[in-house]
Amino acid sequence: MTGLVIRRLAVGMFVLWGAVTLMFALLRMAPGDPATLMLGPDATSAEVDALRTELGLDRGVFAQYLTYLGQIARLDFGDSYRFNLPAMDVVLDRLQATVELTVTATVIAAVAGLTLGMLAGYRPNGRLDRTVSGLTILLQGMPTFWVGIMLVLLFSATLHLLPSSSVGTPQHMIMPAVTLSLPFTAIVARIARTSVVDSMQEPYVQTAYSKGLSRFQVLTGHVLRNSLTPVVTIIGLQMGALLGGAVIVENVFAWPGLGSLIVESVANRDYSVVQAAVLLIAAVVVVLNLLADLSYSLLDPRIRTGGNR
């Protein structure tokens, strides 16, 4: 178990390095530079050059990259050009809003997805199963930004039930979290359905029936726990993707989280902030994936207690 954690953390460091490098290269490939944007259209080229020197942007890209890697190794993520604050402080300031949003969306997706999946797997190819399958295809096919706008049109513009943007009350959370959770719910539902159907074929299910249990009792008493492993895995893996989805949803609903920060910072070529945010997200994804792996052992006693037969 400890060996697994160490191995996975080593791989995780490699993933972080890849994410940082990719982000660094992408930002430098994009046209425009921070000095021009910060000084505005009226600045003289001498002023721009002076600022570029001050920011270290006049050096070669590879030299900048090495300096940057060295800074990260010392946990120095640079300063935000825009806010004149350490980049990581700016990022962490926005982290809480994103965490609230993604955690709420995950809870919605886990509960709704598992329920839908179990309903569908209860009688494979039954009416309920076909309904749920259709629903999941629909949910996965609808783009998040469109769903978000439609929800705003319906619940804010027409029915005046929910606020259309920003934060504050729990009501503010409902639409962004639901929007973010819909495609996630569909994935969880499909994995849960497959897993329930598979587990229903296992011989121990026959044993449970031979005790006189009803189909529902067999499902809740024996099948559910054994079908959870793939569901937990997909939740762990998809929470990472959820952070990506949050970028779009946060912009639709003006949610002041990491996602909207990244978009603003890219527009302003605030390199350090974008890089710090991407690094943080990558780290969160690595940790989530590791937790998903470790959860196997909690769900399956064969892994937890070892095969000491």
Partner: peptide, 30 residues
């Protein structure tokens, strides 16, 4: 009748027992 009047012992006891439940819980479930 199942379990109370008519019970069944299966061929492969490893797959016929629920891997995620303790033996006592499975034996005593009925």
């Amino acid at each position: 009748l199942r379990g109370h009047e008519i019970a069944m012992i299966f061929q492969d006891p490893l797959s016929a027992l629920n891997p995620a439940q303790r033996i006592g819980r499975q034996v005593g479930e009925i």
